[in-house]
């Protein structure tokens, strides 16, 4: 464990908690892409099946349980409890265009052709594009609530910190995972235009609104 991975995990945890609290307290999921949240629930489910097969550490196990629990709770709030506030018209990204290619790629390019490994690889590839429905929804509505931009910033920062973690581990541990690194680079690149808007607008107290 190194400081970059720790702060990456804490940033990821913050994002998940921010979103859950925002929906719970405002009793509304307006502006939130339910499709992205479903994809994240799939990412955690397919990645953390090793909860059933191996124990790494209390930290590892407890964080995985929290991620899975919060992501399903978020999906439940969006599609069940506060479904009346779900903006289905703007959450129109065709997720099958993500899941099918990612599924195919996971079968073709992986470290080991075993079920758990292919599911893990699928989860890594899917996570790199899981935020697209959310970013697409913001581009369609042309704006995002400030709390949602904080959620997105933490979500984007987490994998950016993981990239530094992988540089650290390559240099100090001689360890690297090419699949995780390439997917992590793609994932972080997808946030770049949002990061630019976040820094130039939200951090200056303005509302995040895209030129319609």
């Amino acid at each position: 464990m190194n400081i970059f991975r720790l702060f990456g995990d804490l940033s990821h945890l913050a994002a998940i908690i921010i979103l859950l609290l925002k929906i719970w307290k405002s009793r509304s999921c307006a502006g939130i892409s339910g499709k992205s949240q479903i994809l994240f629930a799939i990412v955690f489910t397919t990645r953390y099946l090793d909860l059933l097969t191996s124990f790494i550490s209390l930290y590892n196990t407890s964080m995985k349980m929290i991620y899975i629990g919060c992501s399903y709770a978020t999906v439940y709030l969006i599609y069940a409890k506060f479904r009346a506030t779900y903006d289905g018209n703007h959450d129109s990204f065709r997720v099958e265009f993500l899941i099918v290619p990612v599924g195919g790629l996971a079968v073709l390019i992986n470290h080991d052709f075993s079920l758990l490994e292919i599911l893990w690889t699928f989860s890594i590839y899917l996570e790199s594009v899981a935020i697209l429905p959310q970013l697409f929804m913001i581009s369609k509505t042309g704006e995002a609530e400030t709390i949602t931009t904080h959620y997105l910033f933490c979500q984007g920062l987490y994998r950016a910190l993981y990239l530094i973690n992988w540089i650290w581990r390559f240099y100090f541990e001689g360890f690297f995972d090419m699949i995780a690194i390439v997917a992590g680079v793609v994932q972080t690149i997808l946030y770049c235009d949002f990061f630019y808007l976040y820094v130039t607008k939200v951090l200056k107290g303005k509302k995040l609104s895209l030129p319609a």
Binding site: R5, D9, D50, N60, N165, F175, F176, D177, I179
Partner: peptide, 10 residues
């Protein structure tokens, strides 16, 4: 160098 197995990460 070890490639693969970033399974100790989240």
């Amino acid at each position: 160098l070890v490639d693969g197995g970033a399974k100790d990460e989240l």
